[in-house]
């Protein structure tokens, strides 16, 4: 079951499950997909709090909200509103970018940071593509890059109800709004990563 909370004028849909130390999970660009295993696996040991980002799921996306900075401040406000203490901040892919932007700003409510295949920085040269152009490849190519086992990620869109399809379309649009240019990174973020002052686990798939 999810519930809705209002933060900074945004109506956020939250998934919550499990008991234990608090863990704020920020999902990838594809969406939270709470029916998949990942939240349940985390919920075995943690109290998992997983918002649908603004524009994904049933979370609202105000016109003014256009950058990942906005999302970082929004979730710092959420952590405050939920009075999180010593929480674990976990971000996957796009969620990892948001988590890093939060951590360079304020880590007071967090004890540890986990970044799984995060977007958000580019270290290569002008003509090098550090971050694959997800919007310039076929769906099949994308699935091969995004999933160790692409079959696990497949969804038969033609079988899904209209509300869920609308959610997918909204999420894709929101992902583009936040990440189109510069493509899926903030050129300044890498200059401030030294400010992260909590133990950080970086997970990187090949």
């Amino acid at each position: 079951m999810s519930r809705t909370v209002a933060v900074a004028g945004v109506s956020l849909e939250l998934e919550e499950r499990g008991d234990g130390p608090p863990l704020l999970f920020l999902h990838a660009g594809e969406g939270l997909e709470p029916q998949r295993d990942w939240l349940d696996l985390l919920a075995r040991r943690f109290r998992v709090i997983a918002p649908h980002h603004p524009g994904w799921g049933n979370s609202s996306l105000p016109d003014w909200m256009m950058t990942v900075d906005d999302l970082a401040y929004l979730y710092l406000d959420l952590a405050g509103a939920l009075q999180l203490q010593d929480a674990i901040l976990v971000g996957a892919c796009f969620g990892g970018w948001i988590a890093a932007e939060m951590a360079v700003r304020d880590t007071r409510r967090f004890a540890r940071l986990v970044l799984a295949d995060p977007l958000g920085i580019k270290v290569g040269g002008v003509t090098e593509r550090d971050i694959a152009d997800m919007h310039a490849m076929s769906r099949d190519e994308y699935m091969r890059l995004a999933w160790a086992d692409p079959a696990k990620g497949e969804r038969d869109l033609m079988q899904l109800p209209e509300t869920e399809l609308a959610g997918i379309a909204r999420g894709r649009e929101a992902f583009a709004r936040f990440g189109w240019k510069p493509y899926m990174h903030n050129p300044h973020l890498k200059r401030w990563l030294h400010r992260i002052d909590i133990p950080t686990l970086l997970l990187w798939g090949e």
């Binding site: 209209e162 609308a166 894709r172 583009a176």
Partner: peptide
């Protein structure tokens, strides 16, 4: 090429639902 025919946000949510269906 497929990826360039329907960039996200170019078409309305309703049109995208119809495309997926």
């Amino acid at each position: 090429a497929e990826p360039f025919t329907n960039p996200p946000g170019y078409n309305s949510i309703g049109a995208n639902v119809a495309i997926m269906q």
